[in-house]
Amino acid sequence: MSADPLDALEQHAIHVLREAYRRLQPLAMLWSLGKDSNTLVWLARKAFVGRVPFPVILLDTGNEFPEVYAFRDRYVREWGLDYVDAPCPPVEETDASLPPAARAAARKTLGLKRLIAQRRYAGVILGIRRDEQPVRGKERAMSPRDAEGRWHVRAQPTELWGHYEAAPPPGGHVRVHPLLAWTELDVWRYIKREGIPFCELYLARDGKRFRSLGERDITAPVPSGADSIDAIIAELASTRTEERAGRAMDHEREDAFERLRSAGYM
Protein backbone atom coordinates (compact mmCIF):
# COMPACT_ATOMS: atom_id res chain seq x y z
CA MET A 1 0.00 0.00 0.00
CA SER A 2 1.30 3.48 -0.80
CA ALA A 3 2.11 6.03 1.86
CA ASP A 4 -1.14 8.00 1.44
CA PRO A 5 -3.09 7.43 4.68
CA LEU A 6 -6.30 7.87 2.69
CA ASP A 7 -5.64 4.45 1.16
CA ALA A 8 -5.73 2.77 4.55
CA LEU A 9 -8.93 4.60 5.50
CA GLU A 10 -10.52 3.73 2.17
CA GLN A 11 -9.64 0.06 2.43
CA HIS A 12 -10.88 -0.17 6.01
CA ALA A 13 -14.20 1.39 5.00
CA ILE A 14 -14.58 -1.01 2.06
CA HIS A 15 -13.87 -3.96 4.32
CA VAL A 16 -16.55 -2.82 6.78
CA LEU A 17 -19.06 -2.27 3.95
CA ARG A 18 -18.49 -5.72 2.47
CA GLU A 19 -18.70 -7.35 5.89
CA ALA A 20 -21.98 -5.56 6.60
CA TYR A 21 -23.41 -6.57 3.22
CA ARG A 22 -22.54 -10.19 3.85
CA ARG A 23 -23.68 -10.44 7.45
CA LEU A 24 -26.50 -7.92 7.84
CA GLN A 25 -29.45 -8.43 5.52
CA PRO A 26 -31.58 -6.55 4.72
CA LEU A 27 -29.15 -3.65 4.68
CA ALA A 28 -29.59 0.02 3.80
CA MET A 29 -27.51 3.19 3.79
CA LEU A 30 -28.53 6.60 5.07
CA TRP A 31 -27.79 9.29 2.53
CA SER A 32 -28.11 12.73 4.06
CA LEU A 33 -26.65 14.23 0.87
CA GLY A 34 -23.78 15.75 2.83
CA LYS A 35 -20.08 15.30 2.10
CA ASP A 36 -19.74 12.28 4.38
CA SER A 37 -22.61 10.28 3.00
CA ASN A 38 -21.63 11.10 -0.58
CA THR A 39 -18.23 9.68 0.29
CA LEU A 40 -20.00 6.60 1.63
CA VAL A 41 -21.91 6.09 -1.59
CA TRP A 42 -18.65 6.43 -3.50
CA LEU A 43 -16.95 3.86 -1.26
CA ALA A 44 -19.90 1.49 -1.68
CA ARG A 45 -19.54 1.73 -5.46
CA LYS A 46 -15.87 0.84 -5.05
CA ALA A 47 -16.64 -2.03 -2.68
CA PHE A 48 -19.24 -3.55 -4.99
CA VAL A 49 -17.57 -2.81 -8.33
CA GLY A 50 -19.64 0.15 -9.43
CA ARG A 51 -23.16 -0.58 -8.22
CA VAL A 52 -24.60 0.13 -4.77
CA PRO A 53 -26.38 -3.14 -3.96
CA PHE A 54 -28.73 -1.77 -1.28
CA PRO A 55 -31.19 1.12 -0.94
CA VAL A 56 -29.99 4.60 0.02
CA ILE A 57 -32.35 6.48 2.28
CA LEU A 58 -32.99 10.15 2.93
CA LEU A 59 -34.61 10.82 6.31
CA ASP A 60 -36.65 13.64 4.85
CA THR A 61 -37.87 16.39 7.17
CA GLY A 62 -38.95 18.48 4.19
CA ASN A 63 -36.59 21.06 5.63
CA GLU A 64 -33.46 20.39 3.62
CA PHE A 65 -32.05 23.26 1.60
CA PRO A 66 -33.29 23.48 -2.03
CA GLU A 67 -29.70 23.01 -3.24
CA VAL A 68 -29.61 19.75 -1.33
CA TYR A 69 -32.79 18.44 -2.96
CA ALA A 70 -31.45 19.45 -6.38
CA PHE A 71 -28.23 17.56 -5.65
CA ARG A 72 -30.28 14.51 -4.72
CA ASP A 73 -32.37 14.56 -7.89
CA ARG A 74 -29.30 14.74 -10.06
CA TYR A 75 -27.22 12.00 -8.42
CA VAL A 76 -29.99 9.49 -7.86
CA ARG A 77 -30.08 9.38 -11.65
CA GLU A 78 -26.38 9.64 -12.40
CA TRP A 79 -25.35 7.06 -9.82
CA GLY A 80 -28.24 4.70 -10.50
CA LEU A 81 -29.24 4.56 -6.84
CA ASP A 82 -32.11 2.62 -5.32
CA TYR A 83 -33.40 5.73 -3.53
CA VAL A 84 -35.92 5.66 -0.68
CA ASP A 85 -37.49 8.81 0.69
CA ALA A 86 -38.38 8.34 4.36
CA PRO A 87 -40.62 11.13 5.64
CA CYS A 88 -40.01 12.16 9.28
CA PRO A 89 -42.87 12.61 11.76
CA PRO A 90 -43.68 16.19 12.87
CA VAL A 91 -41.87 17.78 15.81
CA GLU A 92 -44.92 17.36 18.05
CA GLU A 93 -44.21 13.63 18.22
CA THR A 94 -40.69 14.06 19.63
CA ASP A 95 -39.55 14.00 23.29
CA ALA A 96 -40.83 17.31 24.70
CA SER A 97 -38.15 17.40 27.40
CA LEU A 98 -35.40 17.95 24.81
CA PRO A 99 -34.27 21.49 23.95
CA PRO A 100 -35.86 22.93 20.76
CA ALA A 101 -33.15 22.26 18.19
CA ALA A 102 -32.57 18.78 19.60
CA ARG A 103 -36.30 18.15 19.19
CA ALA A 104 -36.11 19.17 15.57
CA ALA A 105 -33.21 16.76 15.12
CA ALA A 106 -35.11 14.03 16.97
CA ARG A 107 -37.61 13.98 14.09
CA LYS A 108 -34.98 12.08 12.15
CA THR A 109 -34.64 9.55 14.94
CA LEU A 110 -38.35 8.87 14.74
CA GLY A 111 -38.28 8.69 10.95
CA LEU A 112 -35.42 6.21 11.11
CA LYS A 113 -37.14 4.05 13.72
CA ARG A 114 -40.30 3.89 11.66
CA LEU A 115 -38.43 2.95 8.54
CA ILE A 116 -36.47 0.22 10.31
CA ALA A 117 -39.67 -1.16 11.83
CA GLN A 118 -41.34 -1.13 8.41
CA ARG A 119 -38.54 -2.66 6.39
CA ARG A 120 -36.96 -4.74 9.15
CA TYR A 121 -33.42 -3.69 8.33
CA ALA A 122 -30.76 -5.73 10.12
CA GLY A 123 -28.13 -3.15 9.30
CA VAL A 124 -28.09 0.58 8.57
CA ILE A 125 -24.93 2.24 7.25
CA LEU A 126 -24.17 5.78 8.42
CA GLY A 127 -21.42 8.28 7.66
CA ILE A 128 -20.64 9.46 11.18
CA ARG A 129 -17.04 10.06 12.26
CA ARG A 130 -15.30 10.03 15.63
CA ASP A 131 -13.84 13.50 15.29
CA GLU A 132 -17.21 15.19 14.67
CA GLN A 133 -18.42 15.03 18.21
CA PRO A 134 -16.87 13.46 21.33
CA VAL A 135 -19.85 11.20 21.97
CA ARG A 136 -19.49 9.76 18.47
CA GLY A 137 -15.84 9.22 19.41
CA LYS A 138 -16.98 6.30 21.56
CA GLU A 139 -18.62 4.42 18.70
CA ARG A 140 -17.84 1.04 17.16
CA ALA A 141 -17.62 0.27 13.44
CA MET A 142 -20.58 -2.05 14.01
CA SER A 143 -22.77 -0.92 16.84
CA PRO A 144 -25.89 -2.78 17.98
CA ARG A 145 -29.19 -1.02 18.73
CA ASP A 146 -31.96 -2.67 20.70
CA ALA A 147 -35.56 -3.10 19.59
CA GLU A 148 -36.29 0.50 20.64
CA GLY A 149 -33.29 1.77 18.69
CA ARG A 150 -31.37 2.58 21.87
CA TRP A 151 -27.58 2.62 22.10
CA HIS A 152 -26.19 0.85 25.16
CA VAL A 153 -22.97 2.75 25.46
CA ARG A 154 -21.80 0.87 28.54
CA ALA A 155 -22.08 -2.55 26.90
CA GLN A 156 -20.43 -2.09 23.54
CA PRO A 157 -18.99 -5.10 21.76
CA THR A 158 -15.31 -5.90 21.37
CA GLU A 159 -13.84 -5.15 17.95
CA LEU A 160 -10.37 -6.19 16.92
CA TRP A 161 -8.27 -7.36 14.01
CA GLY A 162 -11.11 -6.82 11.54
CA HIS A 163 -13.61 -8.88 13.51
CA TYR A 164 -16.95 -7.24 14.27
CA GLU A 165 -20.06 -8.27 16.07
CA ALA A 166 -22.39 -8.13 13.09
CA ALA A 167 -25.38 -9.63 14.86
CA PRO A 168 -28.46 -7.55 15.59
CA PRO A 169 -29.98 -7.99 19.05
CA PRO A 170 -33.51 -9.48 19.06
CA GLY A 171 -35.78 -7.02 17.28
CA GLY A 172 -32.91 -4.58 16.92
CA HIS A 173 -30.44 -3.63 14.23
CA VAL A 174 -26.77 -2.81 13.78
CA ARG A 175 -25.47 0.65 12.92
CA VAL A 176 -22.56 0.36 10.53
CA HIS A 177 -19.98 3.15 10.59
CA PRO A 178 -17.37 2.79 7.84
CA LEU A 179 -16.08 6.37 8.21
CA LEU A 180 -15.56 6.31 11.97
CA ALA A 181 -11.78 6.67 11.76
CA TRP A 182 -11.87 9.48 9.18
CA THR A 183 -11.49 13.16 10.03
CA GLU A 184 -13.23 16.06 8.33
CA LEU A 185 -9.95 16.85 6.61
CA ASP A 186 -9.57 13.24 5.44
CA VAL A 187 -13.03 13.42 3.88
CA TRP A 188 -12.28 16.58 1.95
CA ARG A 189 -8.89 15.30 0.81
CA TYR A 190 -10.59 12.13 -0.38
CA ILE A 191 -13.35 14.05 -2.17
CA LYS A 192 -10.67 16.02 -3.97
CA ARG A 193 -8.56 12.98 -4.80
CA GLU A 194 -11.49 10.98 -6.14
CA GLY A 195 -13.46 13.83 -7.70
CA ILE A 196 -16.60 13.08 -5.70
CA PRO A 197 -19.42 15.59 -6.33
CA PHE A 198 -20.64 17.68 -3.38
CA CYS A 199 -23.36 20.23 -2.74
CA GLU A 200 -22.26 23.81 -3.46
CA LEU A 201 -23.48 25.01 -0.04
CA TYR A 202 -20.14 23.82 1.37
CA LEU A 203 -18.40 26.57 -0.60
CA ALA A 204 -18.22 30.10 0.81
CA ARG A 205 -20.64 32.72 -0.49
CA ASP A 206 -20.58 36.25 0.94
CA GLY A 207 -17.98 35.28 3.60
CA LYS A 208 -19.89 32.28 4.92
CA ARG A 209 -20.17 28.60 4.19
CA PHE A 210 -21.78 25.48 5.62
CA ARG A 211 -19.29 23.14 7.22
CA SER A 212 -21.96 20.67 8.17
CA LEU A 213 -25.28 20.37 6.36
CA GLY A 214 -28.41 19.89 8.45
CA GLU A 215 -31.93 21.14 8.24
CA ARG A 216 -32.61 24.76 7.25
CA ASP A 217 -34.17 25.57 10.63
CA ILE A 218 -31.33 24.36 12.85
CA THR A 219 -28.17 24.80 10.77
CA ALA A 220 -26.20 27.99 10.29
CA PRO A 221 -23.26 28.79 8.01
CA VAL A 222 -19.93 29.67 9.63
CA PRO A 223 -17.68 32.57 8.63
CA SER A 224 -15.30 31.44 5.89
CA GLY A 225 -13.67 32.57 2.72
CA ALA A 226 -13.16 29.03 1.41
CA ASP A 227 -14.73 29.09 -2.04
CA SER A 228 -12.96 26.06 -3.50
CA ILE A 229 -12.12 22.56 -2.34
CA ASP A 230 -8.46 23.50 -2.00
CA ALA A 231 -9.42 26.49 0.14
CA ILE A 232 -11.57 24.25 2.33
CA ILE A 233 -8.66 21.85 2.87
CA ALA A 234 -6.35 24.75 3.71
CA GLU A 235 -8.93 26.19 6.09
CA LEU A 236 -9.40 22.88 7.92
CA ALA A 237 -5.68 22.40 8.33
CA SER A 238 -5.60 25.51 10.51
CA THR A 239 -9.07 26.13 11.94
CA ARG A 240 -9.93 25.83 15.60
CA THR A 241 -13.67 26.03 15.11
CA GLU A 242 -15.49 22.78 15.72
CA GLU A 243 -17.08 21.22 12.66
CA ARG A 244 -20.54 21.10 14.17
CA ALA A 245 -20.35 24.67 15.46
CA GLY A 246 -23.19 25.49 13.08
CA ARG A 247 -25.42 22.73 14.44
CA ALA A 248 -27.69 24.30 17.06
CA MET A 249 -28.69 20.97 18.58
CA ASP A 250 -25.14 20.22 19.78
CA HIS A 251 -24.88 23.32 21.88
CA GLU A 252 -28.09 23.71 23.81
CA ARG A 253 -27.03 21.64 26.80
CA GLU A 254 -23.96 19.62 27.74
CA ASP A 255 -25.80 16.33 27.52
CA ALA A 256 -28.11 17.10 24.58
CA PHE A 257 -26.19 15.19 21.94
CA GLU A 258 -25.60 12.15 24.13
CA ARG A 259 -29.32 12.00 24.95
CA LEU A 260 -30.19 12.19 21.28
CA ARG A 261 -27.76 9.43 20.43
CA SER A 262 -28.73 7.12 23.27
CA ALA A 263 -32.30 7.37 22.01
CA GLY A 264 -31.28 6.36 18.52
CA TYR A 265 -30.02 9.48 16.73
CA MET A 266 -27.31 9.02 14.13
Partner: peptide, 28 residues
Protein backbone atom coordinates in the same frame (compact mmCIF):
# COMPACT_ATOMS: atom_id res chain seq x y z
CA UNK B 1 -19.39 22.47 23.33
CA UNK B 2 -21.23 25.33 24.91
CA UNK B 3 -19.98 27.83 22.39
CA UNK B 4 -22.77 29.49 20.47
CA UNK B 5 -23.28 28.33 16.89
CA UNK B 6 -21.42 31.26 15.49
CA UNK B 7 -19.19 31.84 18.51
CA UNK B 8 -15.97 30.47 17.07
CA UNK B 9 -13.22 32.81 15.94
CA UNK B 10 -12.65 33.64 12.33
CA UNK B 11 -10.79 30.83 10.64
CA UNK B 12 -7.15 31.69 10.42
CA UNK B 13 -5.56 32.42 7.11
CA UNK B 14 -5.03 29.46 4.82
CA UNK B 15 -1.98 27.49 5.84
CA UNK B 16 -0.65 27.54 2.33
CA UNK B 17 -0.02 25.06 -0.43
CA UNK B 18 1.46 22.39 1.82
CA UNK B 19 -1.77 21.51 3.49
CA UNK B 20 -3.54 21.15 0.18
CA UNK B 21 -1.14 19.22 -1.96
CA UNK B 22 1.23 17.21 0.17
CA UNK B 23 -0.24 13.88 1.23
CA UNK B 24 0.42 13.85 4.96
CA UNK B 25 2.06 10.81 6.52
CA UNK B 26 -0.28 8.44 8.31
CA UNK B 27 -0.47 9.31 12.00
CA UNK B 28 1.35 6.99 14.37
Amino acid sequence: MSSAPSGGPEPEAAAGADAVHAAPAAPL
